[in-house]
Design a protein around this nucleic acid. Structure first.
Lengths: 215, 215
DNA sequence: ATAGTAATAAAACGAACGTTCAATTAATTC
DNA sequence: GAATTAATTGAACGTTCGTTTTATTACTAT
């Protein structure tokens, strides 16, 4: 046999991407074989090489697009306001929403970095650093404005990101808590953690967001 | 050749364990080959099988001993006091100290769970859950006593653990911050996060621990 | 000394891996 | 409808993998 009826390059490539994210997240990059991936897509292993020259190229593509998506999502959400509390709230909400929505891809981007070549690792880390810098800037502005009480901006940013990203480890949609409830809780914890002292009139009407500020 | 002069089973096994933790942490379990591990120890691959029947047995041993060590460390540190603030402070300090000290082993225990058989995975997760339960109990007691302000005990426990464990991702001993400084900062952030309202007289004299309570 | 055990080397096994190549068929273009 | 291009198969390549087997040497107890 050869070309199959109804075959379409674009559709196949999309199916490969999708299956790869799921498989790598579940099994790990090294543990997933190209034959396994091909079987999941319903194709022979050789067909994958029409779309991705090597296995590592495939991994890198998944990671790069995930990071680009994260940066793009933040760019679209980023509030014009200069109020650090509002900005921090937006950052937290965007981060949690994005990571819950793309749990598998986040897992891949966080866990499989060691499988990238040095050059590509650098590329991904650059994007990650840019994203983290956004949070550090918010924290610094808030600290300087006196609305946050923060020991060490860099350390606090890392702590917050680890805490928020950790959501994907235990959160499962449709269980005890809704996304909105989780987000509200994390918002509340974040605001306490940074010692936010003034209430921001622009408080979201989402659930128990009142906690997000006061303490 | 065969048995080498000066060879000693106990020493070899210890060397294998040590090298394995380091290699699995750096390369990942799947990416590390038994030949690579053997070379690191200075032995032939076949020699490894005298100490660990399979590669997975080796991984499981590393993980089980790490988790046992964590539980044991907490058991030795756990304060007799019933004061939730004191207990929480002890938990945080123990957790951070242990995880920084055993960065590589923690990496292994957190990242390679998917390479375990179902049965062994369950065993490790049971230990992990027991450890997390300790934190949940502290949080619950504190919330009931009115010294903590907590939305959801389970969610807060997960958030705290993710935050604290995240230390191993970015912290490198001998860089900008000392272990004591990092611990003090995390203690401070933790106490704010849970809304600890009363000062605990037993405050450590370690650095800026004054922040650990007040807000 | 000698017998027995502990610790390893050396070589080999079959299976699985990522990848390549030639052949073949489906769709598209002219 | 012929020529071209797109998409895929099936088989194969050389490597590497985890593991087993066998032989050999170092140590220990008698």
């Amino acid at each position: 046999m050869a070309r199959t009826t109804g075959s379409d390059g674009e559709k196949t490539e999309a199916a490969v991407r999708e299956a790869a994210v799921s498989l790598v997240a579940r099994l790990g990059y090294e543990a997933m074989s190209m034959r396994q991936l091909a079987a999941e897509v319903g194709v022979q292993a050789a067909a994958l090489y029409r779309y991705f020259p090597t296995k590592e190229d495939l991994l890198f593509t998944l990671m790069r697009e995930h990071m680009e998506g994260l940066l793009k999502a933040w760019d679209a959400t980023r509030p014009a306001s200069a109020d650090p509390v509002t900005r921090l709230a937006a950052y937290v909400e965007n981060h949690i929403a994005f990571h819950i929505m793309r749990r598998h891809a986040t897992h891949v981007s966080n866990m499989e970095l060691r499988s990238l070549s040095h050059e590509r690792l650098t590329q991904i880390l650059k994007m990650r650093t840019a994203y983290e810098k956004e949070l550090r800037m918010i924290l610094r502005d808030g600290a300087e404005a006196g609305v946050f009480e923060i020991d060490d901006t860099g350390l606090t940013a890392m702590a917050l990101i680890q805490m928020m990203t950790g959501v994907i480890v235990w959160f499962r949609p449709g269980e005890r808590l809704s996304v909105a409830e989780v987000t509200a809780s994390y918002l509340s914890m974040t605001m306490r953690l940074v010692g936010a002292t003034i209430s921001h009139g622009t408080a979201r009407p989402s659930g128990r967001a009142r906690d997000a500020v006061a303490l």
